[in-house]
Amino acid sequence: NEEPLPEGWEIRYTREGVRYFVDHNTRTTTFKDPRNGKS
């Protein structure tokens, strides 16, 4: 039961299956979860 991502964020996966987060607001990507700060 995960809380929803902030507005404008999306979860994607690399070809290796590593989860990362896309911030469409700033057009950046990060491996850090914007909901809780954990990677």
Rank of each mutant, 00 (worst) to 15 (best):
G8N: 07
Y13F: 11
R27K: 15
T26P: 01
N25P: 03
L5S: 02
T14Y: 02
N25D: 06
D23P: 01
Y13K: 05
R12F: 09
D33G: 01
D23Q: 04
R27T: 08
T30V: 04
R19D: 02
V22N: 02
N1C: 14
N25G: 07
T30K: 04
G17V: 01
L5I: 05
R12M: 10
P6M: 04
L5K: 02
P4D: 10
R27W: 07
T26G: 06
E3Q: 11
V18M: 11
R35E: 04
V18I: 14
Y13D: 02
T28Q: 09
P34N: 00
E16K: 13
R12V: 07
R19I: 13
N25M: 08
P6R: 05
K32R: 13
T14H: 02
Y20W: 03
R27Y: 07
R19V: 09
L5Y: 03
W9S: 00
F21E: 00
E10R: 03
I11C: 08
V18A: 08
R12K: 13
F31K: 11
N36Q: 12
L5G: 02
F31R: 13
E7Y: 09
N1P: 13
E16C: 15
K32P: 05
H24L: 09
G37T: 13
E2M: 10
N1G: 13
E7N: 11
H24C: 08
P6N: 03
Y20Q: 04
E16Q: 13
E7Q: 12
R27H: 15
H24E: 06
V22E: 06
H24F: 09
F31W: 09
T29L: 13
T26A: 06
N25I: 11
S39A: 13
F31L: 15
R27D: 15
E2V: 10
L5V: 06
T28K: 11
N36Y: 11
E7W: 08
W9K: 00
V18F: 10
D33T: 00
P4H: 08
P4Y: 07
T29A: 14
E10N: 04
E2P: 10
V22H: 06
Y13Q: 06
W9P: 00
P6G: 05
G17H: 07
V22W: 11
V22Y: 15
G8S: 04
P34T: 00
F21D: 00
R15G: 10
P4I: 08
P34Q: 01
R15C: 15
V18Y: 10
P4V: 07
L5R: 02
G8V: 01
Y13P: 00
V22P: 00
N1K: 13
D33C: 02
N1M: 13
W9A: 00
E16S: 14
R12E: 06
F21S: 00
E2A: 10
H24Y: 08
F21P: 01
E10F: 06
E16Y: 10
V18S: 07
R15D: 12
R27P: 05
V22A: 05
E10S: 07
G8Q: 04
W9D: 00
W9Y: 04
R35Q: 03
T26S: 09
G17D: 05
D23N: 09
E2R: 09
K32D: 15
P4M: 09
K32V: 15
H24M: 08
H24P: 04
T30H: 15
